[in-house]
């Protein structure tokens, strides 16, 4: 076993991990942070997405020891506890979520986009979310939600 030290949602954590442990396993099984979901576990669906030093990564195919000393943000950490992020508000208002399984990954992928491009076009949103699968919504209302959040965050 090896000691992994990382910052998760602003808090420093130390956990014991094996050589093959993934970041997703650390988050869910060791730290009990359950917004990153176990979808395909092969890096294809995007529902395990988290931000690693601000960059969108798939935690199911990210080796835990490779994030030594880095900072991870999950859905729980994008606002202060009790607050709601404009993206969360927009997903709620525009029905950007049906069963909700893809939603944490969708919101983090959207945040990663808006952090670098606050005024995306519809096509840019599509491109940014193309690695996150959703089986319920047909994506239309997810894209609507992201564009609405971008508008709100600008004003």
């Amino acid at each position: 076993m090896h000691t992994l030290e990382l910052t998760v949602n602003g808090q420093t954590c130390r956990v014991e991990v094996g050589l093959k442990t993934t970041l997703l396993e650390v988050l869910r099984d060791k730290l009990y942070i359950t917004s990153p979901k176990v979808g395909c576990n092969t890096g294809d669906c995007g529902t395990c997405s988290v931000l690693l030093d601000g960059v969108l990564v798939r935690s199911c195919i990210t080796n835990a020891l490779s994030v030594q000393g880095k900072s991870v943000t999950t859905l729980e950490g994008i606002t202060e506890p009790g607050d709601i992020h404009p993206l969360q508000k927009a997903f709620h208002e525009h029905y950007g979520s049906q069963c909700g399984f893809c939603t944490p990954g969708m919101i983090l992928a959207s945040k990663a986009l808006l952090d670098v491009n606050p005024s995306p076009t519809r096509d840019e949103v599509k491109q940014a979310l193309s690695g996150n699968l959703c089986r319920c919504t047909g994506y239309v209302k997810i894209i609507d939600s992201v564009l609405a959040a971008a508008d709100e965050m600008k004003s």
């Binding site: 395909c40 294809d44 669906c45 949103v125 491109q127 979310l129 699968l133 047909g138």
Partner: peptide, 17 residues
């Protein structure tokens, strides 16, 4: 046998609806 091979539509495959 995984979501990489069973190709459900992504945002890029959905037309204007």
């Amino acid at each position: 046998d995984n979501l990489g091979d069973y190709a459900i539509p992504t945002t890029m495959d959905v037309p204007d609806m």
